[in-house]
Design a protein around this nucleic acid. Structure first.
Lengths: 332, 332
DNA sequence: ATGAAAGCGCTAACAG
DNA sequence: CTGTTAGCGCTTTCAT
């Protein structure tokens, strides 16, 4: 099953290896006759260039490596689409790897990409220590998506979580809400900034005294627990801004079980606009991150750095409010 | 940014290239002293083996390529986890690619993997023409997951859709249902076999006269349309077996809008057991495919074929019934 | 326009 | 145990 090489093509076509190489790379200084001859020979024996050999001698692979922390997360799938689209547009191919949510396996995945001599590496949702990122960046240009590091040689593309939280609160305030609570996302990616954005925006609206935060995480269970806590004491909030959509699902369930109607009694806003949120059955008002665009930007930054040596940059993508059925004016 | 090579390590350690190579591959016939010397030198200058060079000379990459038709589909993410786990267990690494649901891009992705000289290629959910698969299989061992082809050199891992449909119908019949309808999945992967399994099982239970099929596809919209059609004429079914979970979501919505209660008036069964199905809010009875296991099996088949030359095999994984809240006894 | 030759980073005999 | 040598498949001067 040993693959045919350039040499086999050369023999078959009765020319030299170099000529075959020239033809394969589409050089213009080859006679039409010979070109056809070579192409035919290649076709006949099923020749396929060996990327490893090529990358060895050219000192570049024309490939980009992408380490995705969690392949299950559809969020990253869309980021990936953006990356691949932008990379392909410039003739680069993308090879993907997963860290399966474990820093150790992320490190391994990155190492694999490095050994393969990818021309550049993108990481989406990386959880590795930032020294690992620096280490990677020491040998190849890197861009981190969804992970806000400040490191030489590392470009960053992140969602503006602070602003997203602001959009959510603004929307609720506009509807007339004042008692707006926030169930936070714990140590989840961006959760911190979302919480701070919530507080800042409440203050901006003069609602500092109504700030009410519950400690939680990004899961449905956390959403349910959060509601229990909110209903247990103090005046019932008329709106809840959730740290993400999954948590919001738990919140919706818990509210319904408590006999409260959404949005009549309580309005709910999520974050991320995952597919789930658009289901008729959920119809969740939420904050959308332009995932595809984030991927495209990231790839473009990386490709740019492959040729020009510049300072590392950070691109902050503005999110958008998506109004659906879980928000309305407060009761009475 | 040119990477250090084995030669730099050798110079630094004051030994020959071969000695470094031996150490790197963990050979036992190197004196402890020299080994430490080499390792230290490598560490100091940040040496990292060049996979391209290695694969070039060894004529094998120790990498497996995985082409996933649709990265957004969480189903494949889990299959991938299984693949990577099994591959890693045997010292192989996995590089992933996506076809983004387009046969043309799938072909490209496969070509990339081929040029990279992956030792074997897995394809999950491939939509390419089977001649493309044969073409790939001509130069490297292949295993197709979720795609039932019969080709030399191609192993296959599929879910037993026929049996899955049987489990669904059996469950409903046991609950006492007789008027069990099926909304099919059109040309979706496995849809055909699910439909045939439905019919066969109905017949086995002597319910041939109650067979009622509606033409649709794998989407929520199709589920809604299907319900409309089922309610429009003929006696109302007491149970609906859906081609997949997404379609079932549409079915649930449509039933509710028609004022019917699930499961009191109508029972509903989905297929796939996507995350969605387990949400409290849906709580959908469905058929589970052991995705992770499918991936593991696939990787093992491939790894096996790397060393032993045998006939191509097909592994049919049995699905399981997951009973949740959308099924119950028929009305009255 | 075409070919010969050197070499990319590494491994694998083969000597010593 | 260690070093020398000859490639792996390809690109790239440099001659012709």
């Amino acid at each position: 099953m040993s693959q045919p090489t350039i040499r086999h093509v050369a023999e078959r076509a009765g020319v030299s290896k170099s000529l075959v190489s020239l033809v394969m790379r589409g050089s213009s200084k080859v006679s039409d006759e010979r070109r056809r001859l070579v192409l035919a020979a290649a076709e006949e024996i099923g020749y396929r260039p060996n990327a490893a050999a090529r990358s060895l001698v050219r000192q570049e692979s024309h490939h980009l490596g992408l380490m995705v922390s969690d392949l299950r997360n559809p969020f990253f799938a869309e980021v990936t689409e953006g990356i691949v689209a932008a990379a392909n547009a410039q003739g680069y191919r993308v090879l993907i790897n997963s860290g399966f949510l474990s820093p150790a396996r992320e490190t391994e995945a990155l190492e694999t990409l490095l050994e393969l001599r990818m021309d550049g590496i993108l990481m989406a949702g990386a959880r590795v220590a930032s020294r690992v990122i620096r280490h990677v960046a020491a040998s190849v240009p890197v861009v981190a998506i969804t992970r806000s590091v400040r490191l030489p040689g590392v470009d960053v593309v992140v969602n503006d979580d602070h602003m997203g939280a602001g959009l959510a609160v603004d929307h609720l305030v506009e509807l007339g809400h004042r008692r707006i609570a926030h169930i936070d996302g714990g140590s989840g990616s961006g959760a911190n900034r979302r919480a701070r954005g919530y507080v800042a925006t409440m203050e901006r609206h003069g609602l500092a005294s109504h700030v009410r935060q519950v400690r939680a995480d990004f899961t449905e269970e956390a959403g349910e627990a959060g509601v229990a806590q909110l209903l247990a004491d103090g005046p019932r909030p008329t709106a809840i801004f959730c740290a993400n959509d999954y948590q919001a699902v738990g919140v919706l369930d818990a509210l319904r079980e408590a006999g409260l109607d959404v949005p009549r009694d309580v309005s709910v806003v999520g974050y991320d606009n995952v597919h789930l949120a658009s289901l008729r059955r959920l119809d969740l008002t939420t904050i959308h991150q332009p995932r595809q665009e984030m991927g495209e930007q990231a790839a473009r930054l990386l490709l740019e750095r492959l040729t020009t040596d510049r300072e590392s940059r950070r691109v902050i993508i503005p999110p958008k409010l998506v109004v659906r059925g879980t928000t309305g004016p407060p009761p009475r």
